[in-house]
């Protein structure tokens, strides 16, 4: 397992940035630990990071939080999970991962690359990473509801 705290903090800071700018809502980090359940929430957006390190980032929400966040982002009430909601949370994981990778960038290193995000919906799915790494799970609470950030990394140099 190649998970390091120095790789986690940039993601937490990115979540705070997202909430303070585009969502204009308070958010608070709660517990941090190793993810034990395969499927933490109803809807999940994932994005891959590659380059100096390789990993995946996921944001997972209960339906109520996803609807509240997208409603706030668009300034109009969204009542059902549809393609608009999937699109919005895909963009959110893109923003969180993008902010984090910039924070992880050191000096003259080439920037890390992001994949295009993927969204998984429904209560009956599991997400596994095809290496011996584990997912670190950071639970957040916010004015718009609880959600989970998951991150897994392995260093290409190790």
């Amino acid at each position: 397992m190649q998970m390091k705290v120095e790789n986690i903090n940039p993601f937490i800071e990115s979540v705070y940035d997202l909430f303070s700018t585009m969502l204009n809502a308070k958010v608070e980090r709660k517990t941090v630990g190793i993810a034990k359940t395969a499927n933490p929430r109803d809807i999940m957006a994932l994005i891959g990071i590659s380059g100096r390190v390789r990993g995946m980032v996921a944001l997972a929400f209960p339906v109520s939080t996803a609807l509240a966040m997208v409603s706030k982002l668009l300034g109009t009430e969204i009542k059902v999970i549809d393609d608009t909601v999937s699109d919005a949370i895909a963009e959110m994981v893109n923003i969180v991962a993008g902010g984090a990778k910039a924070r992880m960038n050191k000096g003259d290193e080439p920037p890390l690359d992001l994949s295009l995000p993927t969204v998984v919906r429904g209560g009956d799915f599991s997400v596994e990473y095809p290496t011996n790494t584990v997912w670190l799970e950071i639970n957040f609470d916010s004015e718009l509801g609880p959600f989970v950030l998951r991150v897994t990394f392995e260093s290409q140099k190790e």
């Binding site: 585009m22 997208v70 982002l73 668009l74 300034g75 393609d83 608009t84 699109d87 919005a88 895909a90 963009e91 893109n94 295009l116």
Partner: peptide, 12 residues
């Protein structure tokens, strides 16, 4: 933008 939601935000 490939995100329809982000296009909507920018159009706003």
């Amino acid at each position: 933008d490939d995100s329809a939601v982000m296009r909507k935000v920018l159009i706003g």
